[in-house]
Nucleic acid binder design. Structure first.
Lengths: 145, 145
DNA sequence: TTATATGTTTGTATTATACAAGTATATGAC
DNA sequence: GTCATATACTTGTATAATACAAACATATAA
């Protein structure tokens, strides 16, 4: 059924475009989840998941210019969420790692975000949530290129 | 199984955050889909779907300030994609509608976007695409608040 | 008919971003 | 070993999207 397949893809295109708009807004608005801005949350999450990272790595992860990450990291460092230290094997490299405060902030924020998703999805069955999560993983793989 | 349910929600939170970052990047990068910027695409799509609209309506739809929409609409009007006309029942109101050029651009762009999704999802079964689309619809409903 | 409300535009400030130039360190050729 | 080049990062500058506030035009209601 190529026609139904076409419809399904069209719906995904439509709904994903809508979802991105709404989700980005939600992150910016008063109703935003937690205390951390999205960029900060993602950076802390990356450090938590992958350990100490250099600017170049972060820039590539987020598809942003190194100069942008340089400023972001400095701002987050100034807040005390991350710590800068020199790579002992290469004096040019600044590595960043989470501070205890940063880790606490990340955990708190993650909890709040997950709590919000619990509420939003409270009338979904476990099976539906499971399948949606799995399909999102595949969608993310597809988006890498 | 509350524990598995928890894991499923955590995964959704994680993957959606990732998806938004990747998708927003894809819209900005060289690899961006089609010719229209996301804001323009969404505005044209709204006019196509809901017919002539006033600024206030567009601003609410996109959760943006009216002044922002005022400038966006002027820019899109200058490109010839939309047309401004006065509401005959209320002289304060500017209504906007698609021009023929605007509709053509929208159709072309939508085709390209859908084509890209076809490619990205080519190894998904029809059933998977169908379910994903349905769950996205529900996710979007959940996001409205 | 005048005060107030509504819809839009315009002025201004802020923020996130990219690109380019500059600085510090490392590496490799000789 | 020294110098040219490469790499990692920072800083200067420009741009674009945005919000907020003030201004302006039109409508509504007392």
């Amino acid at each position: 059924m190529p026609k139904e397949n076409q419809k399904a893809v069209e719906r995904i295109e439509y709904e994903l475009t809508t979802l991105i708009r709404r989700a980005v807004y939600l992150d910016i608005s008063d109703k935003k989840i937690g205390h951390l801005e999205r960029a900060v949350y993602l950076l802390l999450r990356h450090l938590d998941e992958f350990g100490p990272s250099r600017l170049k790595e972060l820039a590539e992860t987020f598809n942003l210019d190194i100069s942008t990450l340089s400023r972001q990291a400095s701002a987050i460092e100034a807040k005390g969420y991350i710590l800068r230290f020199s790579d002992p094997t290469d004096g040019r490299v600044s590595l960043f790692k989470l501070t205890e405060l940063g880790r606490e902030k990340l955990i708190t924020d993650k909890k709040m975000r997950i709590e919000r998703y619990h509420t939003m999805l409270e009338d979904w069955s476990y099976e539906e949530k499971k399948v949606f999560g799995e399909l999102l993983v595949r969608m993310n793989e597809a988006l890498i290129d």
